[in-house]
Design a protein around this nucleic acid. Structure first.
Lengths: 238, 238
DNA sequence: GATAACTGTGTCTCACGGACACAGTGTATG
DNA sequence: CATACACTGTGTCCGTGAGACACAGTTATC
């Protein structure tokens, strides 16, 4: 377990000493990762098998294991690769100002990544080895709060809260398999509506609230509340 | 797929007509669900196999399928069962007041459930059939906001945001397998610290913020920010 | 040119989810 | 009361997926 963790980290951070002898590899960790991402985008994480990835690359399943220790590590690579380089160049603006639009833009960018790669949601569950890109994303978000009256711990917690909110709202567009929800959307809503209607005396608050709910507002609403709360804390510090 | 969804819902809501003939069943959906939860608490969701559940009950694997359509449906049952009945009796207080302590208490209760059943985090990913208990939990949270100046949609979004935040903070105590993180905790922190130290010029904001971070504050901090934001919105409505 | 490191491959094993047929058991109907 | 029928638990079988391992071919170093 500890070994696996260290292995995965080494792989994520590109700490493999390049081989000196032997044939030049036709495959590469990057190629495998990219192919796996393409497959997962289409068919989801549970359906992602070494076999399918190999087929897309026109190689055999076992050849993948020369470049990737196992499926778990492959997923870790996919995650970091899917994030890609962090958005928002260093931003020459004075620190301490504009933290709010910067965090908002960051959240939207994060959301876009999750929309592009629905399987990411499932892959982000639990603690796992972090890659350079993921850390860079986090760093950029924390940097948006530079110069504010928040402590380091508060900045981290703020970023954590915002990122978590984005993740949670993205879940609504995703099936349990980690693929985009297409036409079946109505089915779920209808089933829930029927259920609530059948038991409206059992869930009174939920029923009445649902009656006047507006879809697709959760991301913006929650983000505004969170950032309002952060703004209040910052101004309270002055 | 649509069939599966309906089947799972029927099972969750106990809509099985009881059999009239035949031997009385030694097994039951409840017994299987309870055993599966016990197993998952110990070894996590990926390691939860029909075989293991059957062994704990001293039955054969295939006998489970007489009471549960498949593993996915079993997990759905486990989720609703793990939630248990919603906390907080109807609360005789006047609505509109005390929404904040009620939501806070609700969040803490939710957190306690997640701590008891670490695998829940992974099981909650994506849209899935909702059971009566889960709906009741949601209803109670929404009810805490009854009488406030929020619209129905805003109440739902608030609850969604709070619940999501609780979920996200709970993730830090969980491994990728959905078991509690025990001694390995230090390993993760140390690995991250080493990583950050090695690349401190690459992640400046993150490095300095981490240096003065206080662990285990994320839940309370984020919750306070969110509720501050909600309070501001409510007072703005007056 | 020999050796050693490395790559991709074919074969094998094990674990898991689930289909299916079967024998035993209890209830309703003739 | 007998018999047919619905239902339960079981044993066997299959398909699929992760991964171990041995092998043959390839390339740089001595």
């Amino acid at each position: 377990m500890a070994e696996d963790f260290a292995d995965a980290l080494a792989l994520l951070w590109g700490l493999k000493p390049p081989p000196k002898r032997g044939p030049k590899a036709a495959l590469s960790t990057e190629a495998i990762t990219a192919a796996a991402i393409a497959v997962a985008d289409e068919i989801g994480l549970p359906a992602l098998t070494m076999q399918v990835v190999a087929e897309r690359l026109s190689f055999t399943k076992m050849s993948l294991y020369r470049h990737v220790p196992g499926k778990a590590e492959l997923v870790a690579l996919m995650v970091d690769h899917a994030f890609g380089p962090a958005p928002q160049p260093p931003a020459p603006e004075p620190p301490g100002e504009a933290w709010r639009p910067r965090l908002t833009a960051w959240a939207e960018e994060f959301r876009r990544v999750l929309d592009r790669h629905p399987w990411l949601l499932a892959a982000l569950v639990g603690r796992r080895p972090l890659g350079p890109n993921e850390l860079a994303w986090t760093d950029h978000a924390v940097a948006a709060l530079d110069g504010t009256a928040l402590t380091g711990g508060e900045r981290l917690d703020t970023v954590f809260t915002v990122a978590g909110h984005v993740r949670n709202t993205a879940q609504q567009l995703v099936t349990a398999e980690g693929t985009r929800r297409e036409g079946g959307e109505a089915e779920f809503e209808r089933a829930l509506a029927v259920l609530l209607d059948e038991h409206r005396e059992r869930y009174p608050a939920l029923t009445t609230a649902s009656a006047e709910s507006v879809p697709d507002q959760a991301l913006a609403f929650g983000l505004d509340r969170i950032l309002d709360g952060v703004a209040e804390l910052i101004s309270r510090r002055r």
